[in-house]
């Protein structure tokens, strides 16, 4: 397990990478392994852990909340408990919170200071979420930002922005789309897009035929 760039490396070759930081972070990782600070296996396990978490976790939480009012209350009041009920690993120091869209209120999530994001239930944040444009504008002109994503909300709907600056990470519980009666939980989860869990979109509407 010396730092020869082979045994146990999460990925072997980086020579196609253009950033000078590709070599620097690899150097840091190799050296930290050699000093016994951590092992390649631990780094690889962390990468796999990150890859395994996607917005499908959030979609499952939402679908269950749509069909089970008690679960919805739990999701809104104790998000981590709701996660463990569905077998989603949300342990770890970060606290999670869920805010509910209704006919009158639409929520939008941003982190203006960095890129705080509820990774256990949404995975890695999309590039645009981390962009300076989104971070600066989502608090200042949320309606204009949502329009860029194709979401035009009526004047009568109150737009509520959450800037997750501290120890909580937020997810939106979108409203159940019309025409989704009688669908299974799995079918409902497929309507829940990542963007609808951040608030720049609403869930897909069920296909009219089939």
């Amino acid at each position: 397990m010396s730092g020869n760039g082979h045994d146990g490396h999460p990925h072997e070759e980086l020579r196609h990478e253009s950033s000078p930081w590709a070599a620097r972070i690899r150097a840091v990782e190799e050296l930290l392994v050699e000093k016994g600070v951590f092992t390649h296996e631990e780094v690889r396990a962390q990468i796999e852990h990150t890859e395994a978490r996607t917005h499908e976790n959030g979609a499952r939480l939402v679908a269950r909340a749509w069909v089970d009012p008690e679960f919805k209350n739990l999701l809104l009041s104790d998000t981590k408990a709701a996660c463990s009920e569905l077998g989603i690993d949300a342990s770890g120091p970060v606290e999670l919170a869920v805010v509910e869209n209704t006919e009158r209120v639409h929520n939008l999530i941003v982190c203006t200071l960095c890129s705080c994001y509820p990774r256990p239930i949404l995975g890695r944040p999309p590039d645009w979420y981390k962009s300076f444009a989104y971070r600066s504008r989502a608090v200042r002109e949320p309606r204009a930002v949502m329009r860029e994503f194709g979401l035009e909300l009526p004047e009568g709907v109150e737009v509520v922005v959450h800037d997750s600056t501290a120890d909580l990470r937020y997810m939106v519980l979108p409203a159940r789309p019309p025409g989704a009666e009688g669908m299974s939980e799995e079918e409902l989860a497929a309507l829940v897009t990542r963007d609808s869990l951040i608030g720049v979109a609403i869930p897909r509407e069920p296909a009219r035929t089939q």
Binding site: R140, A144, G156, E158, V161, H162, A166, L168
Partner: peptide, 19 residues
């Protein structure tokens, strides 16, 4: 209350976690 000439409803709100 946060911005001059904010575009949107007067009910629009913003939540921030503050120590």
């Amino acid at each position: 209350d946060l911005w001059e000439s904010y575009e949107g409803s007067t009910a629009d709100a913003l939540y921030v976690d503050v120590y």
